[in-house]
């Protein structure tokens, strides 16, 4: 079943000076139910425009979009949707607790369950201690966390997130990744935009790449990475004199007595033989996989 359908979406913005900006050119794709879909694209590609169209904030110049088969122009289409805007802002004179109550009531969460839902989400996003503080005193990352909280609090089926990781510290990023994975396990649909390929690799089932308002590729992340291991990054600790033994392989980087080598997949066994013979000590071996970033960059250029 399709959770989101986008058909031939075109959006032309008119600027105040009368110029027109083609933000979306005949964009079409679907997101399946229970799928985590990453929406990747450079700045100004049209990701936010697509997402705003999906949640009814802007009307497309032509084409249409459906949520669970219902046109987005109907308000009730969004009853089971959680939306996180990019760089979100919330009524700063409210506390997170009050704001989430407002959200939960608007999504018709049964009154009796509201406090429990709020407690759960606030604790999950580590905002519990700040729940009674007005949001005007919040840091950027805290506001982003409130943004995630207001998406999660009413437990929707479809999550539409515009750059959910932006403004978060590493702990927060990994938290968000875990949350998305958890949602996926519970069979929820997640559609999120990002510039960061690594995020997509870690959590997405599929990825769509948008450039200048057109979709240039939709791919299964697993397929993309199936090529698997391309090579290895090996760090050795050794004295300069022993390095001649490894002559066929060139040093990638050196710091002190640590030497780093990039070894293609088929040369690994031979390299390891030489290492053992030279008496160097292996400090670290990292696998080098086929990279989504390279793929992305090749598409964009």
């Amino acid at each position: 079943m399709k959770a989101l359908e986008i058909h031939n979406l075109v959006k032309i913005f008119k600027t105040k000076k009368g110029q027109s900006v083609h933000a979306l050119n005949d964009l079409s794709f679907d997101v399946m139910q229970g799928e985590v879909f990453g929406f990747l694209g450079p700045n100004g590609a049209g990701k936010s425009t697509t997402i705003k169209t999906l949640v009814g904030l802007i009307t497309p110049s032509s084409g249409n979009a459906l949520i669970n088969g219902v046109p987005v122009s109907t308000g009730t289409a969004r009853l089971k949707v959680g939306y996180l805007p990019e760089n979100p802002a919330f009524y700063d004179y409210l506390t997170p607790e009050e704001y989430l109550t407002y959200v939960a009531r608007s999504f018709l969460v049964p009154v009796a369950e509201v406090p429990r839902c709020i407690e759960q989400t606030l604790k999950l996003l580590e905002l519990w201690d700040a729940r009674k503080r007005q949001m005007r005193s919040f840091s950027k990352g805290m506001v982003q966390r409130v943004g995630l909280a207001q998406v999660l609090v009413h437990d929707p089926d479809i999550y539409i997130l515009d750059e959910p990781m932006s403004g978060l510290d590493p702990l927060g990023r990994s938290l968000v990744k875990n949350i998305i994975l958890e949602l996926k396990n519970r069979g929820k649909t997640v559609f999120f935009s990002t510039h960061i390929t690594d995020d997509v690799e870690k959590v997405c089932d599929r990825v769509g790449i948008i450039v200048k308002g057109s979709l240039v590729a939709v791919n299964n992340v697993e397929n993309l990475l199936k090529g698997g291991v391309e090579g290895y990054l090996v760090s050795l600790q050794s004295a300069d004199s022993t390095l001649q033994n490894l002559a066929p392989f060139s040093v990638l980087r050196q710091s002190g007595t640590i030497f780093e080598y990039y070894i293609p997949k088929d040369g690994f066994n031979r390299f390891m033989e030489l290492v053992i013979r030279s008496g160097s000590e292996v400090v670290l071996v990292e696998t080098r996989r086929k990279n989504l970033e390279d793929y992305f960059l090749s598409l964009v250029k």
């Binding site: 009730t76 939306y83 805007p85 608007s106 207001q150």
Partner: peptide, 14 residues
């Protein structure tokens, strides 16, 4: 102006 409306208007109420 402060974009408070972004989340709010994406809610089901009209």
């Amino acid at each position: 102006e402060r974009r408070y409306t972004y989340p709010v208007l994406s809610w089901p109420s009209s």
